[in-house]
Design a protein around this nucleic acid. Structure first.
Length: 420
DNA sequence: TCTGGGGTCCTAGGACCC
DNA sequence: TCTGGGGTCCTAGGACCC
């Protein structure tokens, strides 16, 4: 048996934790560069705002109606997420942190000593009390069904945010009410194809022959079908499973056309990616870079490309990663285009405890590399002004716009909320 | 003028091997 | 006119997730 604990409009709710005056008010959170809406409260939804609405199109009408908006504040969200996950770990022995605002709980054994509905209610209330965040809980014999349960908890207020689908009759009843595109694993493309063969609800999907699905769709959807019938196919993921790739990419705050500026941005992303890599205790062998123009500007000539370099040996040294990123960038850069986005991707990871040196690897790099990186990471961890490489640039005019960001209430001493 | 970022998994097709 | 069979590995791209 699984439980899915899911936060209600996570980013918007985070903004409310330290702003009780925003209770029952419309709140939206914007993507990087204040580009579009990525989270919205119930009240904002009622005003007709939708996920992914471009901010510049809705700003004036929305604020006139008394709506509040925030630039994304990932430091705050990550910290609140960590508090919620720690709380869940105390309530259940085995959890899988699925995303910043969701976790699956393994309820094996719990149903022997406690009513599951009560357990769900206890989770919800404890999290509210300890962190201030509203969550809902879906309980079911498979992960896919627990997602369905969570959907029920979201759209039917009578459930008070907790739905237990351990009984097959209840599963059937709810599946019949859920549109097929809401099923976990059914995206836009599959939805369209399912509609063409007359599949409209989750229950319709649960009833198709799995062989037919395997032959006409794919094995992933066949698993989904079996999960909807209550047959567990997807287990709790092992959290130790390490990342396979690290991506850092950003849209620029304005168009960029010269190589120097691109180099600066790519070096900055490379340094961030390298720091992430070290946090995972890994080294990487490949560094890829991609750049692209703005596809929304149809009047502009379009260009996109990516390039990859293989390092001499696996490394997590920022200097190596920056150097190779710049090399890849120079190989793919073409002048005469307005670039809007660049990114870096690290792949093929190795444990940082095992260092296989190459005969031709420069000695001075291997000698103090780990010590130097360690020191930089330590300094940058402690809320002091960060240490960075000159290649990352000083003014960073290309860097993203966040004009209406809330304070970092829980992660910066200067931003602590004041009580007067 | 202004349209996000970071991931995973699967599959088809090409290169290569015997 | 005629040109095998079976396998592995790698990569790019598609689809999905939050």
């Amino acid at each position: 048996m699984f439980a899915l604990v899911d936060c209600n409009s996570f980013y918007a709710s985070c903004e409310r934790v330290f702003r009780p005056d925003l209770k029952n008010k419309p709140v939206v959170v914007l993507s990087n560069n204040d580009g579009c809406v990525v989270a919205l409260s119930k009240e904002a939804k009622k005003l007709g705002i939708k996920m992914c609405d471009p901010w510049y199109q809705i700003e004036s009408a929305y604020t006139k109606k008394g709506g509040y908006a925030f630039s994304s504040n990932y430091e705050l969200y990550a910290d609140i997420s960590a508090r919620i996950m720690t709380t869940l770990e105390r309530l259940s022995p085995n959890i899988e942190i699925y995303s910043i605002d969701e976790a699956f709980l393994d309820l094996t054994g719990v149903n022997n000593c406690q009513n599951l509905q009560d357990f769900g209610m206890q989770c919800k209330e404890t999290i509210k009390q300890w962190t201030g965040m509203p969550v809902r809980v879906g309980i079911a014999p498979t992960k896919t069904l627990s997602k369905i349960a969570s959907y029920g908890a979201k759209y039917y207020p009578a459930t008070q945010g907790v739905v237990d689908l351990s009984k097959p009759e209840r599963q059937k009843k709810l599946l019949n009410l859920v549109p097929v595109q809401e099923v976990w694993g059914v995206g836009r493309k599959i939805h369209k194809r399912l509609n063409q063969i007359g599949i409209r609800t989750a229950l319709d999907l649960a009833m198709i022959d799995t062989k037919y699905v395997r032959n006409n769709f794919n094995i992933v959807l066949a698993k989904t079908v079996r999960e909807l019938r209550g047959e567990p196919c997807i287990g709790l993921e092992d959290q130790s499973s390490a990342k396979k790739q690290i991506v850092v990419s950003r849209t620029f705050s304005k168009k960029v056309d010269d190589l120097r500026t691109l180099e600066e941005a790519v070096s900055d992303y490379a340094a961030r990616a390298a720091a992430k890599l070290r946090r995972e205790n890994r080294r990487c062998l490949y560094v890829s870079v991609f750049i692209r123009t703005n596809p929304f500007r149809t009047q502009d000539r379009q260009y996109r490309n990516s390039g990859t370099t293989r390092l001499i040996a696996p490394t997590s040294d920022t200097r190596d990663i920056i150097q190779n990123a710049k090399k890849s960038l120079r190989a793919i850069y073409r002048s005469g285009f307005n670039y809007i986005k660049a990114g870096i991707l690290l792949s093929d990871f190795y444990d940082d405890q095992i260092q296989q040196y190459d005969f031709f690897y420069p000695k001075e790099r291997t000698l103090h590399s780990d010590q130097l990186m360690n020191t930089i990471d330590k300094i940058n961890k402690k809320g002091l002004p960060p240490v960075y490489f000159l290649a990352q640039g000083i003014k960073r005019k290309w860097s993203m716009k966040r004009e209406i960001q809330s304070p970092r209430y829980t992660t910066s001493w200067n931003d602590l909320p004041k009580v007067s």
